[in-house]
Computed example of a mutant assay.
Amino acid sequence: MNAVIYHNPRCGTSRNTLALIRHAGIEPEVIEYLADPPDRSRLVDLITAAGLGVRDAIRQKGTPYLELGLDDATLSDDDLLDAMLANPILINRPFVQTDMGTRLCRPSDVVLQILPPITRPFTKEDGEVVG
């Protein structure tokens, strides 16, 4: 199975998601999106394929979300995308794409929806057991 994760190694949710993918026996393509952000078309494709609206794909915590005025409900999707592309830290993570679909994997075990069934339990960094 093919898999791609838009990953931030400093994020526990992203690390757990990557570990779950590997636990399922899949070595994904890892894109550290802060260093190598998706272009506009790719970002729109990820958001759409995950069944989200643009605003749902914006990360607020630990970002310049408020400083940039992105809480303004009158901003268009294009405005929000412009901000995300100019400041990739605003892209919520991790997005994962496999042959079975695309998800924003928050929480990390959402990735199980687009992986083959795992046959043994997995323990997250915080000790929570999945599977």
Rank of each mutant, 00 (worst) to 15 (best):
56 D>M: 04
67 E>R: 10
71 D>Y: 06
125 E>N: 09
12 G>H: 11
93 R>T: 05
107 P>T: 10
130 V>R: 01
78 D>L: 05
39 D>R: 10
76 S>M: 08
114 I>M: 01
84 M>V: 02
74 T>P: 01
14 S>P: 13
25 G>A: 08
83 A>N: 11
35 A>Y: 08
20 L>N: 03
106 R>C: 09
12 G>T: 15
61 K>Y: 08
55 R>N: 09
34 L>T: 00
94 P>M: 09
65 Y>G: 02
43 L>Y: 05
21 I>D: 08
50 A>W: 05
24 A>E: 01
119 T>C: 04
89 I>E: 14
93 R>M: 14
80 L>H: 03
113 Q>R: 15
31 I>A: 02
12 G>I: 15
122 F>I: 11
68 L>H: 06
32 E>R: 08
112 L>I: 14
130 V>G: 05
82 D>K: 05
36 D>C: 11
13 T>V: 12
19 A>G: 13
108 S>M: 11
17 T>D: 15
34 L>C: 02
68 L>G: 06
92 N>L: 07
72 D>Q: 07
59 R>E: 05
109 D>P: 07
119 T>N: 13
63 T>V: 00
49 A>S: 13
28 P>Y: 05
71 D>N: 14
52 L>P: 10
53 G>N: 11
20 L>C: 00
115 L>R: 02
131 G>Q: 07
97 Q>H: 13
102 T>Y: 11
90 L>V: 09
66 L>H: 12
126 D>G: 07
42 R>I: 07
107 P>H: 11
41 S>K: 14
48 T>G: 09
36 D>N: 15
104 L>H: 09
35 A>T: 05
38 P>Y: 02
58 I>Q: 11
19 A>T: 12
61 K>Q: 06
40 R>N: 07
37 P>W: 01
131 G>A: 13
68 L>S: 07
88 P>R: 06
50 A>E: 14
80 L>W: 02
114 I>N: 01
103 R>G: 08
83 A>W: 14
118 I>D: 10
125 E>H: 07
